[in-house]
Write a protein that binds this DNA or RNA. Structure first.
Lengths: 217, 217
DNA sequence: TCCTGATACCGTGTTTTCACGGTTGATAAT
DNA sequence: ATTATCAACCGTGAAAACACGGTATCAGGA
């Protein structure tokens, strides 16, 4: 037990954060350097000089969310390791945090032992990937042609949804699909109805949420 | 130890295949149903009626390679689990086999214990992912295109971007932010300029790509 | 003091988006 | 043979989004 792993916490749920502090202090090889309610304050603390080895970041925080915080930390202090802690296990969140610089991702309902392993793994190797993460990500990668999974949308509608996730106007989408822009109006209205959506923005987010379209260009 | 896991082997390297047979027979909870030198013969065997629980497939085989074999097996007998066994650890091979339907991927130089775990994992859960696989794939996913640029945006702009990822109109966004809708026009035009974007859809995707906004609702 | 830049705001006009209510033709169903 | 259904299409008008060119205020600098 040569050295203590120094930890910083950022989570806007105070009760949860305090609980985490207790938990971590109980592990004999780590200590909590400080704990703050949002990303901005974490950045401030880091700027003040005392640097932790590992930061535990919640994703949904006011001021500066987990993604932005992770990116900023990695920009300024690339040696600090980041572990994302979240209630959400969506592929989008997981991949986003990993891309933002997190070395691992665990859920808030994880067992203390899993937390400990994650922190130790990240401290030693820079990363730690639980079954959850690998499962989700493999699933995403493997199920590339995911047409089957989604609700009862036909080929045209799926193509339309994908094209909606671009800066094309409906007219331009119609042109690239080789159909009348009136028909596109039809597709749109149909989807609005079926998916309970009222705007193109809604369509875009639906397409991304369901994986019909992706953000990686 | 209620039931034996029934295994089928397909690999054109006879010596290796025989070795595998020995190895598997030594495990007390599994048995080799049959072993063949290529994918086509495996398909033939399967068609004859005696079905294994798990197929171990080499990738490079004459007649019918691992990819095609896996796909065919999954088409006709979706319940049969597939473990890819290969000397190659390239992302292409790994991802290709997983997409073709394999539930796991191990290297030929793996330890017997790893093989056993892989087979058991695939038999029980339908998948087994070693460190190797997850490492390769995570690497590929994470090191994809990512906007490192992180243009400097102020608080208001960030808040605006987040609100853009909803079905609110700009007027409604202005109301919730407590400023004039004209000012919102300003924010929008400013961001269009700065980020080289031409539409609200573009803003939404930028916000999601950079993690400024998230999709979880 | 004058100048600059940033922020919040406004007016006008065009294009795009969205809502609503249609038509046609092909295909399947009774 | 008739009905139903569906995909593709169209017209009109209102609302929203976007483009462009403004004003007023305030906070530094030179």
């Amino acid at each position: 037990m040569s050295e203590q792993i120094k930890i910083a916490l950022a989570d806007d749920h105070n009760l949860f954060r305090k609980g985490m502090e207790e938990l971590i202090e109980d592990f004999d090889n780590m200590e909590v350097l400080y704990s703050v309610p949002n990303g901005q304050e974490l950045i401030n603390k880091l700027s003040s000089g005392k640097l932790p080895d590992v930061c535990l970041l919640d994703i949904n925080m006011p001021e500066l969310n987990g993604f932005e915080t992770a990116r900023k930390i990695k920009e300024q202090w690339p040696d600090i390791k980041i572990l994302a802690v979240s209630v959400y296990d969506s592929e989008f969140n997981i991949i986003g945090m990993l891309r933002a610089g997190a070395g691992g991702y665990i859920l808030k309902d994880a067992q203390p032992d899993a937390l400990r392993k994650a922190i130790e793994g990240i401290y030693e190797n820079g990363f730690y990937h639980s079954e959850l993460v690998t499962g989700k990500i493999l699933h995403r990668l493997i199920s590339q042609p995911q047409e089957v999974t989604t609700t009862q949308l036909n080929e045209k509608q799926l193509e339309f949804l994908k094209l909606c996730c671009s800066e094309m106007t409906y007219r331009e989408i119609a042109d690239t699909m080789g159909i009348s822009h009136r028909t596109i109006d039809g597709f749109r209205d149909q989807l609005f109805e079926k998916l309970n959506i009222k705007s193109r923005t809604g369509l875009v987010m639906y397409a991304l949420k369901t994986g019909i379209a992706t953000l990686d260009t």
